Simulated scan of single mutants.
Amino acid sequence: MLLKDHKDLKAAIIALPSKEKDALLLRLIAKDKVLTEHLHFKLLEDESDLEGRYLALIEEIDDEITGLRKLRKAGAKESLIVMRKLNGRVNHHFKVTKDLNTEIELRLHLLTVIPIAYEEFTFLSMAKYQERLSTYFVKTVFGLYKKYLKLHEDLQFDLMDKFNQLLYKIGENNLQKIARIVGLPEEI
């Protein structure tokens, strides 16, 4: 049931006394953790808090990648798991802050530092993880590219070198075929 489809319900909610509306609103907000965190950020935090969240997430990404690199038998499977986890953290950051610039910078950082080159295995189960990692990586870069195109041209210019470095990483790891299929350019 969507509120826009029920004009009479919308009118009845608007007609509620202020105290009742506040109580209902607080009950609804309490049921959604992301919404609660978003409202906290929007109403009680400022630009310095955004910077703090950004730096904390950069540190978390770097710590996870360092831990991944220290694993003796790290492979495509472990890299894929870490990448998905960190992508989820960046998604959460965006849902809370609604700041496209820091989301793009965080994702650029993640995609730049995540290892994606592992030796090809003859075992079918290991090879499928390398294929999954490659596909997930390129599709994530493509999603980032679409968001990059929506940025103001000055911001695009500032991030161009980092993005080209990411596109070079795709070429360096022989992922151009997947990149062409999804529509990524070779260079910006």
Rank of each mutant, 00 (worst) to 15 (best):
D99T: 05
A56K: 14
D62A: 11
L35T: 14
D99E: 13
V90C: 07
D62C: 03
E37V: 06
H92P: 01
E45H: 11
I61T: 08
T102E: 10
N101A: 05
R72W: 06
D46N: 14
R69M: 07
H109T: 06
E103L: 13
A76R: 08
L80W: 08
L55W: 06
D49W: 05
L50V: 07
L68N: 01
E37L: 14
L71H: 01
V90Q: 05
E45P: 02
M83Y: 04
L35Q: 09
E51Q: 14
K70T: 02
F94N: 04
K85Q: 04
S79K: 06
A76F: 07
I81L: 09
E45G: 03
R84V: 04
L86G: 02
T36E: 15
L80K: 05
L55R: 14
L68Q: 02
K98N: 10
E78Q: 15
E64Y: 08
L100P: 03
K33N: 09
H93K: 00
V34M: 09
K42F: 14
I81R: 12
M83T: 09
K98L: 14
D32G: 08
H109V: 08
R89N: 07
H92A: 06
T66W: 03
K95W: 08
L100A: 12
K98C: 03
K85V: 01
E37Q: 15
L35S: 06
H40N: 15
R107A: 03
K95N: 13
K31H: 12
G67E: 09
L106Y: 12
E37W: 08
L108P: 09
H109G: 04
V82N: 01
G88K: 09
K95G: 04
D63A: 12
I61Y: 06
G67Y: 05
L71S: 03
H109W: 11
E64P: 00
R53K: 15
R107T: 10
R107V: 03
E37Y: 08
H38D: 02
K98E: 12
N101C: 00
L39T: 11
R107C: 01
K77T: 01
N101H: 10
D32C: 11
N101Y: 10
E78K: 13
N87G: 11
K85L: 09
D62L: 06
F94H: 11
L57A: 10
V90I: 15
T102F: 04
I61G: 05
R84P: 01
L100M: 13
R107L: 13
M83N: 02
R89L: 09
S79P: 07
K42Q: 14
R53N: 07
S48T: 15
A74R: 01
E60P: 00
L43W: 11
I65C: 03
T66D: 09
I65Q: 01
L55H: 08
L71Y: 03
K73T: 11
R53G: 12
E47H: 05
L68G: 02
L86R: 00
F41G: 01
L50N: 06
R72P: 05
R53L: 15
D62R: 12
E45R: 13
I58Y: 07
G52H: 10
R89Q: 12
E64A: 15
T66Q: 10
K33V: 14
